[in-house]
Design a protein around this nucleic acid. Structure first.
Lengths: 212, 212
DNA sequence: CAGGTTTTCGCCTATTGGTCGAAAACGTCG
DNA sequence: CGACGTTTTCGACCAATAGGCGAAAACCTG
């Protein structure tokens, strides 16, 4: 979600929503306040620090240090946004102010990296969703097609994806109605990558017996 | 590596090396300068932003925002450190100043998370090393025993670990001399987690034919 | 009800990671 | 100098995961 600047510098270019940190708030409180006040985004399903951008010449005039965040909202959320804000596709960004384009690309990279190793995918979907919707989200974020078959298997093994029982109405051109799912509460919340080199004993019970 | 504070507040407690950001440098330049000037650490094998710590009461007096970094040095590096600095084990920290203990724990968590999914392990070892040394590093960072057999297989498949041909002298109690390895240049530098949901075509050529 | 569309499920294969045991290559001690 | 303990290395086996079809299921339109 971008915000069209009215004033110089970089008037009419698009920027990320943000603002100054107050002395009595930490950075996360601040970014939530900025989003609420300026672009009316309230139901953030995920918020994490992205990086600090601090090049001395990143903005004209006195140096400004920015702490960038990656924030996700469910895809069905449609906040009542002010006139000068708009949703944009990450692949087709308009002319951006300052170093904001590189911030966006960094955020996209981070999202893609984490998507398949964490259950960050949760944050992109509404409470109930179809596998196809989820596949579309993953495809968009990762930049390549993802097979629905695989996605369902991987997720149901890892995070305990559970069916709600209901079905979504089929599209205008027909097709089998898709089953609705929700993320199981039993699926542990994981925002850091799993370990592949597991602790001993966490593997299979083993077997292995060469014939003598 | 910790630094014993001489002055109040929190005199005689241990703190992370650091200092103030100058107006003409970015945060990474700054942290490298601080480490060089204050504790003489120069050969950082890996540096990455960890997080911003910004709670209004994290230090007494006016609020100070800190950008914390995770920095790694090879295990054979032994910088000529000043008298008031010392290496400490992450599991047995002395009384720490401010919120520095939580910063250390966050860093350790980050390191452990990334270790098995990236080739960050590179940064912990000297240019030539044995599998046992690597296993010890992994065990220390992860907090549980890691099998040398597994580690070698996983790494040689993923990152192309290559033998140098030489061997290290055995320990005081004998034992087979360990082969020396280096990290192959062909192993891509990876600091972000790999994708598990791979793009189509990157899997097996497929096969699969049910008999009719 | 035939044809098109989308979803879902089952089967197969390749690769990965864990465990174990044996062999190799040292040192030391009697 | 050979038996023994030690450490490393290698090979075999098993379990689980991930990818790739293809067929069946369930819906729409005409």
């Amino acid at each position: 979600m971008l915000w069209e600047r009215a004033r110089e510098p970089h008037a009419h270019r698009w920027s990320l929503p943000g603002g100054e940190l107050r002395v009595d708030e930490d950075v996360e409180t601040s970014i939530r306040r900025q989003l609420t006040e300026k672009v009316d985004v309230r139901q953030l399903s995920h918020v994490e620090q992205l990086a600090v951008f601090s090049a001395p010449d990143r903005v004209p005039g006195p140096r400004v240090v920015a702490t960038a965040f990656l924030g996700l909202v469910p895809s069905d959320a449609d906040p009542a946004r002010p006139a000068d804000t708009e949703w944009h596709c990450v692949d087709t960004l308009p002319p951006m102010a300052f170093d904001h384009a590189s911030i966006v690309h960094r955020a996209r990279h981070r999202l893609a990296s984490k998507l398949s190793y964490t259950n960050l995918g949760f944050a992109l979907a509404p409470p109930e969703f179809t596998i196809s919707l989820l596949r579309d989200h993953y495809s968009a974020a990762l930049g390549y097609r993802v097979s629905a078959t695989n996605l369902q298997r991987v997720l149901s093994r890892r995070l305990l994806l559970e069916p709600t029982g209901g079905t979504a109405p089929p599209g205008p051109s027909g097709g089998r109605p898709a089953a609705l799912f929700r993320f199981s509460a039993k699926g542990i919340k994981v925002t850091d990558p799993f370990a592949v080199l597991r602790p001993p004993g966490s593997g299979r019970p083993a077997g292995g017996s060469a014939n003598p």
